Amino acid sequence: TTYKLIANGKTLKGETTTEAVDAETAERVFKEYAKKNGVDGEWTYDDATKTFTVTE
């Protein structure tokens, strides 16, 4: 399944996707990606669109 991340960070803005077996796995991947890019904010997830959003 393809999951999408929308990053609304102070230093990183944009979108990326990952293939994962479930939302929990995708969330781990995206949180690691955000951490590597210095983004720390509020996370939301929309199951209907398989989209995570992080906003600083």
Rank of each mutant, 00 (worst) to 15 (best):
residue 52 F to S: 00
residue 32 E to N: 08
residue 11 T to Y: 14
residue 41 G to R: 01
residue 12 L to E: 05
residue 19 E to V: 15
residue 45 Y to D: 00
residue 53 T to G: 03
residue 37 N to Q: 11
residue 34 A to K: 01
residue 8 N to Q: 11
residue 32 E to I: 09
residue 8 N to L: 14
residue 22 D to K: 03
residue 5 L to S: 01
residue 55 T to Q: 08
residue 19 E to T: 14
residue 24 E to V: 11
residue 28 R to P: 02
residue 9 G to A: 13
residue 1 T to D: 10
residue 5 L to R: 00
residue 54 V to G: 00
residue 41 G to A: 03
residue 41 G to D: 02
residue 27 E to P: 00
residue 43 W to K: 00
residue 13 K to A: 09
residue 50 K to R: 12
residue 38 G to R: 06
residue 27 E to Y: 15
residue 5 L to V: 03
residue 56 E to Q: 09
residue 44 T to F: 11
residue 51 T to L: 04
residue 56 E to I: 09
residue 52 F to M: 01
residue 26 A to T: 01
residue 53 T to N: 04
residue 13 K to H: 11
residue 12 L to K: 05
residue 33 Y to A: 03
residue 7 A to D: 04
residue 47 D to R: 08
residue 38 G to S: 06
residue 30 F to G: 00
residue 30 F to C: 01
residue 22 D to G: 04
residue 1 T to V: 11
residue 56 E to G: 06
residue 17 T to Y: 15
residue 21 V to S: 12
residue 42 E to D: 12
residue 27 E to L: 15
residue 20 A to R: 02
residue 6 I to P: 01
residue 35 K to G: 06
residue 4 K to C: 06
residue 52 F to L: 01
residue 39 V to W: 15
residue 7 A to R: 05
residue 1 T to S: 10
residue 2 T to S: 07
residue 33 Y to P: 00
residue 3 Y to D: 01
residue 35 K to P: 01
residue 17 T to S: 10
residue 19 E to C: 14
residue 28 R to V: 08
residue 16 T to P: 04
residue 44 T to A: 10
residue 8 N to R: 12
residue 23 A to Q: 13
residue 17 T to G: 03
residue 54 V to A: 02
residue 42 E to S: 10
residue 16 T to A: 11
residue 14 G to L: 15
residue 27 E to N: 05
residue 18 T to R: 05
residue 49 T to V: 05
residue 15 E to W: 14
residue 51 T to V: 06
residue 46 D to Q: 04
residue 52 F to Y: 05
residue 49 T to W: 04
residue 40 D to G: 07
residue 42 E to N: 10
residue 39 V to N: 03
residue 11 T to S: 11
residue 41 G to L: 03
residue 51 T to S: 04
residue 45 Y to F: 07
residue 11 T to D: 09
residue 34 A to C: 14
residue 41 G to V: 03
residue 1 T to E: 11
residue 25 T to K: 06
residue 36 K to D: 09
residue 44 T to Y: 09
residue 50 K to L: 07
residue 35 K to A: 13
residue 39 V to R: 02
residue 14 G to F: 15
residue 28 R to T: 07
residue 12 L to W: 15
residue 48 A to T: 13
residue 44 T to R: 08
residue 8 N to G: 05
residue 31 K to G: 03
residue 34 A to L: 09
residue 33 Y to H: 04
residue 14 G to D: 08
residue 55 T to D: 06
residue 7 A to N: 05
residue 3 Y to G: 01
residue 7 A to C: 15
residue 4 K to F: 14
